[in-house]
Design a protein around this nucleic acid. Structure first.
Lengths: 97, 97
DNA sequence: CCGTATCCCGGAGGATACTG
DNA sequence: CAGTATCCTCCGGGATACGG
């Protein structure tokens, strides 16, 4: 469990993975979809996920540059965890004051 | 999903829930089992979980005092999420350097 | 035993300016 | 477009001392 908690650590990490479950996305697409975290923060999280082999980073040599992030097989397997989270959240709305 | 992320937020929260899945525990038992987080931190997290109806806090009027934390039905239902985390962690060990 | 009250620190994350 | 480079803020969490 500690392993999973470490991989999904950080304010944006889980949301990044969720976003990529619907297919590879560019840096800018991710920023917009997530609600515009700072570029620094997004870069930091993406690099961490890359080092943990959760996603791959592909730079296309074009002008302007195009950088695509794609989940690895390991990354996609996190869908099991995210789906459990989704289910729980749907079935247990916040308590009233 | 945001709901689940909010409930499980914090360095110790998920581990607290895991610990309580094996049955109600006292404050001191939790501290020991978790590896001695500070009393302040543990109290903060337990209070947050209590407000979110994930667990209940029962004070037994004895000397010395005995305070027992027990998962609610909602809290126990988080086992689905934690189990998915456990499974993923077991099946995907850390990548080599 | 189970906290509360203070004080403190590191580091995640944001704001802004700049670059290949 | 997709970052880097800097600087800064905020606050979760730890350390310590004390209280019911």
């Amino acid at each position: 469990m500690e392993r999973t908690l470490k991989v999904l650590d950080g304010k944006w990490t889980t949301l990044i993975v969720r976003e990529l479950l619907s297919g590879p996305k560019r840096f800018g697409e991710l920023r917009t979809a997530l609600g515009s975290p700072s570029a620094k923060t997004l870069t930091d999280r993406l690099r961490a996920l890359e080092h943990q082999r959760i996603l791959t980073r592909t730079v296309h040599a074009e002008v302007p540059p195009r950088v695509v992030y794609r989940l690895t097989e390991q990354g996609e397997s996190l869908s099991e965890v995210l789906y459990a989270m989704l289910r729980w959240g749907e079935e247990h709305p916040p308590a009233e004051g």
